[in-house]
């Protein structure tokens, strides 16, 4: 299914997605949108792993399993991050990173 599409195309897509995620992480102030930018970054890395696996070593599964494990780690990370965000919201009534600047209460 990949005839006529060089590997570079996949890498460029994932590069652009990665740096869009970086841009979002740097400009957003809401904790949940920063988390979404992190998900973009993780997702772009997944595309890289899978494309390398398919184009360079199609007889192996390394990139495939790396992506599976990254997806599981992303799910765990999202669950813990959202628990922390909800706790922060209860305490500070806001999830803006600039209003949550005191470490003790």
């Amino acid at each position: 299914m990949t005839e006529g599409i060089p590997l570079h195309y996949f890498l460029i897509i994932s590069t652009l997605m990665f740096f869009i995620g970086i841009y979002g992480f740097l400009t957003r102030k809401n904790l949940i949108t920063m988390l979404m930018s992190t998900e973009l970054i993780l997702n772009s890395v997944n595309i890289n792993f899978v494309a390398f696996n398919r184009y360079l070593f199609p007889d192996k599964f390394q990139g495939h399993f790396f992506s599976l494990i990254i997806i599981a780690v992303a799910a765990a990370e999202a669950a813990v991050a959202i628990a922390i965000i909800i706790n922060i919201y209860r305490r500070f009534k806001s999830i803006d990173v600039q209003k949550v600047d005191e470490m003790k209460y």
Partner: peptide, 24 residues
């Protein structure tokens, strides 16, 4: 799906698109 990793695509749909987005 284009790279013919159908299982990974299914996991992406269920865990990422189904789970994480709903959580967010």
């Amino acid at each position: 799906f284009m790279l013919s990793y159908t299982f990974l695509a299914a996991v992406q749909l269920t865990v990422y698109a189904g789970g994480i987005v709903v959580l967010i």
